[in-house]
Computed example of a mutant assay.
Amino acid sequence: MPDLPQHRPVLSDARYNGMSGSGLGLEALPEGHLLHVLGAIEPPALAAELAKAGLANSSIRKAGFRQWFVAGNAPLSSVSLDALAAALAGKAVVMDQSHGRVRIGVSGRSSRLLLSKGTVVDLDPTVFPEGESAMTMLGHISVQIVRTGDDSFELTVLRSFAESLWDELTHMAASAEKDSVSRLSLP
């Protein structure tokens, strides 16, 4: 029997161990599960169905009209996916995107400054509160940005663009750090 391909997290090399300093943190998040749900179901009803399927710790993020991403750190069992698909039958369709997308965490007091260098989304907390999400471009790469806390965000990107996005974020972080130092030295 031929060897089957083995899953290897895309951001698992030493250079992706995370970055922190100067009010900014960057980390590769666990490649748990990411589901794309499409249909006429509202988030509260979806949350109830997720809880029944054993996915209560997952978060629901708006991904478009009648579309949501359901993300979580734990790997998804086929039993949970089948249970959720059966529960949503007639209301919504669920597609497992876990193999095709990667999540990156950006945190710290300079996180908004960093992300503002690559996107036009207004990340001010009064406009983009915790739990809010937006499908957008970060530089030339399509991402979903989710505010997960006061100074923390999660970026979801297609797996094939994860390393490029990481490199872009580290480049922008160096630039953001310089800007932060420049502002402190102004009279």
Rank of each mutant, 00 (worst) to 15 (best):
A174K: 01
L46K: 11
A14N: 15
L50Q: 05
V127P: 09
V121G: 11
V37I: 14
L55G: 02
V37N: 03
L46R: 10
W68M: 04
L55H: 01
R159S: 07
A63G: 04
G23W: 03
D151S: 06
G118R: 07
R61T: 15
I41Y: 12
I60S: 06
H171M: 11
R66T: 02
A85D: 03
E154Y: 04
G131L: 02
D96A: 15
G90P: 05
A53E: 04
E42I: 11
L26T: 01
A89N: 06
I141V: 03
L46S: 06
V120R: 01
G64N: 07
L34I: 00
F161Y: 14
S12F: 10
V157K: 00
L165T: 07
E42L: 13
M137A: 12
F69I: 09
L165V: 11
M172I: 11
R159A: 12
V94I: 11
S175I: 12
L84T: 04
L34S: 01
S152A: 13
M137L: 08
T156R: 04
D13Q: 11
H171Q: 07
F153P: 09
H33P: 12
S116V: 02
A176L: 08
E27T: 02
V106T: 06
N57K: 12
E177C: 03
L138H: 00
S142R: 09
L113H: 15
A28S: 10
